[in-house]
Simulated assay, not measured.
Amino acid sequence: MTQNQYTKALDDAGVSLWLDDLSRDRLTSGDLQELIDTKTITGVTTNPAIFAKALTSGNAYDKQLTELAASGADATTAVVEMTTDDVRAACDVLADVYTATDGYDGRVSIEVDPRLARNTEETIAQAIELHQKVGRENVMVKIPATTEGLPAITQVLAEGISVNVTLIFSLTRYREVINAWLAGLEGARTNGHDLSKVHSVASFFVSRVDTEIDNQLEAAELPDNQVQQLRGRAGIANARLAYRIFEQMQETERWQLLASSNARLQRPLWASTGTKNPEYSDVRYVNGLVAEHTVNTLPEATLNAVADHGEITDSRIPEYYDMDDEDLDALARAGVDYNQVVEKLEVEGLEKFVDAWNALLTDIEEQLKSHQ
């Protein structure tokens, strides 16, 4: 099959495209394999909201629900069984990509229970459990970058488990994530793990930053021309400045020592790249974030938009650092409190995942009763 010219151009520019969606229907229909073959998908990410949609739509899970109900499984056990089965199957679909890229791609992410995000020890325990239950080398465990999540990230990496660090909004937190990742690799080396097998990505959320700051700008008593000038600037600027931190990290002696032991870079992953504001281009958060050693995780609608009319150029993020600095400075002068924004987004992001998880458990509990 022939790869789409626009998605292939992204891959050629160093951007790995991972699908931000998974369901049993997508697996059994061959749709995931088709996206790999035609739209250059090289990985899959999931989250509680994605599984809530998948497990409560259609009848693809009916047979397993009946079996789980017969075994007396509770809702939590049922959700873990069904989601790890889907992730394991997706890992198998992507196994050829994983082998062909020497583990660089072909990854499938599964997230720890978001209710554990403020509990370091329970996050560690479940991350290890999920890794073992999926039982595939190309699985990544997603851990939110909360204050309590940082030491969990370090410990799980030290166990030789690949980690997708999620829910990053601020540049300060990203620096802390890098430190946690480096400490984890150092621990893995001490524990005798092959560092070339321990992969990580740092998921930096993009469009939600624009949504929040745009709302604040609209509510502020600012001249219309100033609002129009500043709207939609923050999300991409924030992400590109994170890439500057990523570049600076590679110059450190700490990283160089790990690289000499065959460690792999923790790639920035651009998440929340579906465009929320219909006034903005539907490929805004793809075209504006092209750089080597990055991942863009796309909802299917955004992937289809890129495949239809993506305008992909070579890596160009470093050209914009001065402008990005000025954009954030201009927002501060306009009264936007960056620290307040990113803190609010982390809290709200975690709440959304917890709400989705709780709703899923309630629904699955009802489904288990109906399948008895």
Rank of each mutant, 00 (worst) to 15 (best):
E176Y: 11
Q132E: 15
G103A: 04
T28M: 11
A220I: 01
S196H: 07
S315F: 05
I168H: 00
R175P: 01
E111P: 02
T40L: 07
V163W: 10
D37C: 08
E129I: 00
T154Q: 12
I143L: 12
L65N: 04
N179V: 14
L368Y: 01
V80D: 12
T172L: 08
S71D: 12
A356L: 04
I317C: 09
L27S: 05
L32R: 08
V108H: 15
I36Y: 02
L303S: 01
Y243V: 06
W255L: 12
A219N: 13
E186M: 06
N119E: 14
E186F: 00
A188K: 08
L328A: 04
D21P: 04
Q228I: 11
L68N: 06
A307I: 03
R175A: 12
A239K: 07
Q33V: 11
Y243K: 06
E346P: 09
F204V: 14
D314R: 12
T101N: 03
R136G: 01
A234S: 15
E122D: 13
K8M: 07
M140A: 02
A234Y: 09
N138F: 13
L195W: 06
D363A: 15
D96M: 03
G149W: 02
T84Y: 05
E111W: 13
D74K: 02
I50A: 12
A100S: 10
A158Y: 02
E111K: 15
I124C: 04
A49Y: 05
N164F: 14
L265Q: 05
D85E: 15
I50H: 15
H193R: 05
E300Q: 09
T146I: 05
G335M: 03
E346W: 07
T252F: 07
T273M: 10
T190N: 02
Y104E: 10
R267N: 03
T362P: 00
K344E: 10
E159S: 11
K53G: 08
K53E: 11
Q250G: 06
D20K: 08
T7F: 01
L55I: 03
S196G: 06
A125D: 10
D102A: 13
D355I: 15
I143G: 05
D329C: 05
V206E: 04
N262G: 01
A259C: 06
L257T: 12
Q33A: 15
D329L: 15
L241W: 11
P299W: 04
Q216I: 13
D20W: 08
D327S: 14
A359W: 05
A70R: 01
D74Y: 00
A202P: 02
A127Q: 01
E221S: 12
L303H: 06
Q5I: 14
N191H: 01
V165L: 13
D282C: 09
V139I: 14
D324I: 00
R118C: 02
D31Y: 06
Q266N: 14
R240I: 11
I213D: 11
K63N: 10
K63P: 00
D74T: 00
L68C: 12
L171V: 07
A188I: 00
T190K: 08
L116H: 08
E81W: 00
W18G: 09
D92P: 07
